[in-house]
Write a protein that binds this DNA or RNA. Structure first.
Length: 450
RNA sequence: GGCCCGAUCGUCUAAUGGUUAGGACGUCGGCUUUUCAAGCCGAAAACCGGGGUUCGACUCCCCGUCGGGCUACCA
């Protein structure tokens, strides 16, 4: 029902010159149109950053190989699987511009099929009933090996695995059974998921074997941690895709950053367009060890993407983010200064909402001395013609020379008068954008109230 | 506790037996400069420890240490 459409809208804005440093021909993944992978989140709320990375890796593997990706919602736990929670996942994927070829499939909807397989397992005596529940028989001896493209072969001795429960006493199928059956029925060839699932994998392999099928290829991704080394969670700041969006990050930067959290290409490239990622990403280069989510680096990366956006595109995103319009001119003045969309308004809000209220700034720069310079600047600005950046700069620099002052002794009082704070875009450009009338009004106001 | 995975600068990573152990973020210093950024230049910063194997180990093996995951009739 909810079929994702072509997800490339944002890519043609991506004019990053990030290919410059690539010297070697890409080792693109071999075309493998028969590859099928899947992203199978359980709907527990907002999409976690770790989940987003898993989705991204699956997507890159599928898109880079000509294969397909299935989106399956693991909703057999009805209590958690609310419609809202499912929407959260879809919403996050859409924002990230990650699409899929099949689904979203409801795991719960396959309940009948799961029960059918359950009966089959009972019939073939691979499973048996125990206190009402159903368990899979695990041999006392021997072992099951999971073939993992990231970790190599991982072998589990059967003596360490008890006969495990595959269905509740009410007959409802449990996770390991449902997953194994769904992957099998969907023709999944590659299971790419978090390392926290590794211990479950031999169980799923045993179910598949009991059904007479070969298991898919596995790839267990290293987990994501917070700066304190603990599993990433809310208390580390932004932990979900939605929070990243609200913090002002753009999807192409998030994709680039997430791709690098647990994967590296070579010793020189850090910035990858999504097209490059599709082409270059490969599971065998995924790191084995857990990675720490570092928002500082994301901020830097986001800033580089923001500066590469076409002005009109940046403006559009900022207008959507702030809910305001008519931002184009202010965006032009701020584009070099912001790292996230959220950085914009604190820097440019004064153009639209009047000066901010920063008593300390006024105290420091609008003292008696500051006001006398401001008065001199005011007089120069009153007759500057035309009232544009070059003329304003010439006029104010003349004031600086005449007063024999340091430039910022003249400029800072003006800045505080018009913006209310000590930080703003270029002062000449800001005055021009504000216009003579508004500029003089704010300066007069500062002169009279200080 | 048991089973399993992992270990290179603070962080993300490169290196697949022979490198002055490379890059990026961050940090520090400088340049630029009207504030803040951005940009440019430069610096400091790592192979967890111990045994092997080898002419030679970050790379291979073993042990230890540390970190992490799993250990439900959750997913």
């Amino acid at each position: 029902m909810h079929r994702s459409t072509s997800a490339r809208r944002l890519d043609h804005h991506n004019g990053l010159r990030i290919r410059d440093c690539v010297g070697l021909p890409p080792m693109s993944a071999p075309a493998n149109s028969s590859l099928v992978d899947r992203f199978a989140p359980s709907p527990t709320g907002q999409l976690h950053i770790g989940g987003a990375r898993t989705a991204l890796y699956n997507w890159l593997v599928a898109r880079g190989s000509g294969g397909k990706m299935i989106l399956r919602i693991e909703d057999t736990d009805r209590a958690r699987s609310t419609k809202e929670n499912v929407e959260q996942i879809l919403d996050a994927l859409e924002w990230l511009d990650i699409d899929w070829d099949e689904g979203p499939i409801s795991q719960a909807a396959a309940d009948g099929r799961h029960r059918e397989v359950l009966a089959q397992l009972l019939e073939s005596e691979h499973a048996y009933e125990f206190e009402g529940s159903t368990r899979l028989k695990v041999p006392d001896e021997g072992s099951t090996t999971v073939h993992d493209v990231i970790r190599g072969d991982v072998t589990f001795q059967h003596e360490n695995i008890d006969d495990f429960t595959i269905a509740r006493s009410d007959g409802s199928p449990l996770y390991n059974l449902a997953v194994a059956v769904d992957d099998l029925d969907s023709g999944v060839t590659h299971v790419v998921r978090g390392e926290d699932h590794l211990s479950n994998t031999p169980r799923q392999v045993m179910i598949l074997n009991a059904l007479g099928h070969e298991p898919p290829v596995y790839a267990h991704l290293p987990l994501l941690h917070g700066p304190d080394g603990k599993k990433l969670s809310k208390r580390h700041g932004a932990a979900s895709v939605q929070e990243l969006r609200e913090a002002g990050y753009v999807p192409e930067a998030v994709r680039n950053y997430l791709a690098l959290l647990g994967w590296g290409y070579d010793d020189k490239q850090t910035l990858f367009s999504t097209e490059e990622l599709k082409e270059l990403f490969s599971l065998d280069r995924v790191s084995k060890s857990s990675a720490v989510f570092d928002e500082q680096k994301l901020r830097w990366m986001n800033g580089t993407y923001l500066r590469e956006l076409a002005p009109a595109d940046l403006t559009e995103r900022l207008e959507k983010f702030t809910g305001r319009d008519g931002l184009a001119d202010a965006v032009e003045l701020c584009r070099e200064k912001i790292q996230t969309l959220a950085d914009f308004w604190p820097l440019a809000g004064f153009f639209f909402d009047g000066p901010a209220d920063d008593p300390k700034a006024r105290e420091k720069f609008l003292d008696e001395e500051g006001r006398s310079r401001l008065q001199a600047a005011r007089e120069a600005l009153a007759t500057t013609e035309p009232f544009d950046t070059p003329s304003i700069e010439a006029a104010l620099r003349e004031v600086v020379t005449r007063l024999d002052a340091k430039p910022n002794k003249v400029f800072q009082p003006i800045r505080v008068a018009i913006s209310g704070t000590t930080i703003s875009p270029g002062i000449f450009e800001s005055l021009e954008l504000l216009g003579r009338e508004e500029s003089l009004a704010r300066i007069d106001s500062a002169l009279s109230t200080s």
